[in-house]
Structure formats: structure tokens, C-alpha cells
């Protein structure tokens, strides 16, 4: 247990009934590293990401964060308490933002810190203002999500996740649902986070972005990690045929 990285995934396997979506995945992420996971649809990359914070728990295997096993097998009550606690250290950003429509931006960001960390209303508001300023949306604090553009919604979602001061941030195709001209503003925020040495695991289709921001790239296909390495290797000089084929289809745009 002492030779563990910041985030460790050991022998991860996941089946939905008879369908094997993840087959024996191993992954180690150091603190401050930024890892991209790329691959075709159905490769299991989203499933792997969602297994890290137990949204779709693994069928077998282990997930560790800084010495704590996330997917511990416990009796129901203790499991729930454990998972809720651990999730406070893991931030997640979704493809479809999942902002709470019945709360303002302020409400979205302050809900969890007030409820789970016991922050006072004043402290939570200050926190919300800080996080929003970081993503460049300070003036929208009292708007409802329905009034925001897609890019703005996603930036608020990032601020909401950051407000819980997570140890690692997970991005599940954060820009896939955005109109092309709105992608850049979200990428900028993610780049900023990278510069601040936030540990990030990013599932994405944006090869250019992955290349510019990430330390490591994993290529997944049909539930296994086919190849992994630094962006320079994966994107310029892939070793495996499957990687080459995938990249050829995706980069010839």
C-alpha cells in the first residue's frame, strides 16, 4: 500500500450483465499529473472515469485515492457514509453540465459546501464569488442556469466542483456537448487548473487539447488500455495499430 500513487486503479473490471465493458485496467496517477483518456465510443473510458467516484461501481478491482480505498465493500449504511465522504475529495464535471435548474449559480455552488462542510452562509458566498471569479463569471452569480450559454454553464459546473476543494478532478467529455465556439472558454479554465497543478483525469475527444495540456495519454479500446504514454509519443508516433487507426480517423479533419 505504500508504493501507491495518488490515484491508483488496480485490476479494474466492469460488466453490465454479460457485456464486459472494462477488462483488467491498471492505472496510476501521481499528484499533479494530468491524464487524458481517449478512444472510440464503447471503449469504456467513461465507465472507467465514473468508477473512480463509484457512480458506476466496478464489478471487481480496486480504486484508491491517497491511501484510502474508494470502492471498499462495506455494509450499506457504512458504505453510504464512506462514499459520500470520499466523493467530497473528487470533483466531477459532466458532459451535460447537470447544473441544478431550480437554484441560482450562487445556490448551485454553495449548496454542497454549506450542507456537507458546514460553511456559514457568509463564508459560502465568499467561496462562491472566488470560484466564479476564477472561471471568469463573477457577474453571473445570481442568474439561473437557464439564462447561461453552454460554455458558461460548464464553467459554473467546474466552479461548483472546485468549491469543494477536491484532490482530483474528473472530466467526462466536458466539451462534447458544446457548440464549437464555446469550447475554447472551457478549455481555458481547464488549462488554468492544469497550471495550478490540480490532478486531473480527462476523458475527451479533443486531441489537440489533450496534447497541449496533458502529461500522459491513455488510448482505450474495447475495455482495455491499448497504449499509454506522453502525448508526443501517442499522437506523433503511436506504437499500436489500433491506436494508429483511431488517430487517423480522428485527426484527419
Amino acid at each position: 500500500m505504500t508504493d501507491q500513487a495518488f490515484v491508483t486503479i488496480k485490476n479494474a473490471a466492469k460488466s453490465f450483465g454479460a457485456l464486459e465493458v472494462l477488462k483488467d485496467i491498471n492505472l496510476q496517477v501521481e499528484r499533479g499529473q494530468i491524464v487524458a483518456i481517449i478512444g472510440p465510443s464503447g471503449s469504456g473510458k467513461s465507465t472507467l472515469l465514473r468508477a473512480i467516484n463509484e457512480l458506476d461501481p466496478l464489478t471487481s478491482g480496486e480504486v484508491w485515492l491517497e491511501g484510502v480505498q474508494i470502492n471498499k465493500k462495506l455494509p450499506y449504511r457504512q458504505y453510504e457514509a464512506h462514499v459520500n465522504q470520499v466523493r467530497q475529495d473528487i470533483g466531477m464535471v459532466f458532459q451535460h453540465f447537470n447544473l441544478f435548474p431550480h437554484l441560482t449559480v450562487r445556490g448551485n455552488i454553495t449548496l454542497a459546501p454549506r450542507m456537507l462542510k458546514g460553511l456559514s452562509e457568509a463564508d459560502a458566498n465568499k467561496l462562491a464569488e472566488e470560484q466564479l471569479a476564477k472561471v471568469g463569471l463573477a457577474e453571473k452569480i445570481d442568474e439561473y442556469p437557464s439564462r447561461l450559454s453552454g460554455g458558461q454553464k460548464q464553467r459554473v459546473a467546474i466552479a461548483r466542483a472546485l468549491a469543494m476543494t477536491p484532490k482530483v478532478m474528473l472530466f467526462d467529455e466536458a466539451t462534447s456537448a458544446l457548440d464549437p465556439e464555446l469550447v475554447e472558454e472551457v478549455n481555458l479554465v481547464m488549462k488554468q487548473l492544469a497550471e495550478e497543478h490540480m490532478t486531473m483525469i480527462i476523458v475527451t475527444h479533443e486531441m489537440d487539447f489533450a496534447a497541449s495540456v496533458c502529461d500522459r495519454v491513455l488510448f482505450m479500446d474495447q475495455g482495455v488500455v491499448v497504449e499509454e504514454g506522453p502525448p508526443s509519443v501517442i499522437f506523433q508516433n503511436p506504437q499500436e495499430d489500433r491506436t494508429r487507426n483511431f488517430l487517423r480517423k480522428h485527426l484527419s479533419r
Partner: peptide, 17 residues
């Protein structure tokens, strides 16, 4: 929408919360 539950749970909120 299921995503609402996912987002809330991801932040660490319990089922009841």
C-alpha cells in the same frame, strides 16, 4: 433527469440530501 442525481451524489450529498 438522472444527471441531477449524479451531480449531487458526486459532490458528496447523501441519497436523502
Amino acid at each position: 433527469d438522472k444527471g441531477q442525481t449524479e451531480a449531487a451524489r458526486t459532490l458528496g450529498m447523501s441519497r436523502w440530501q
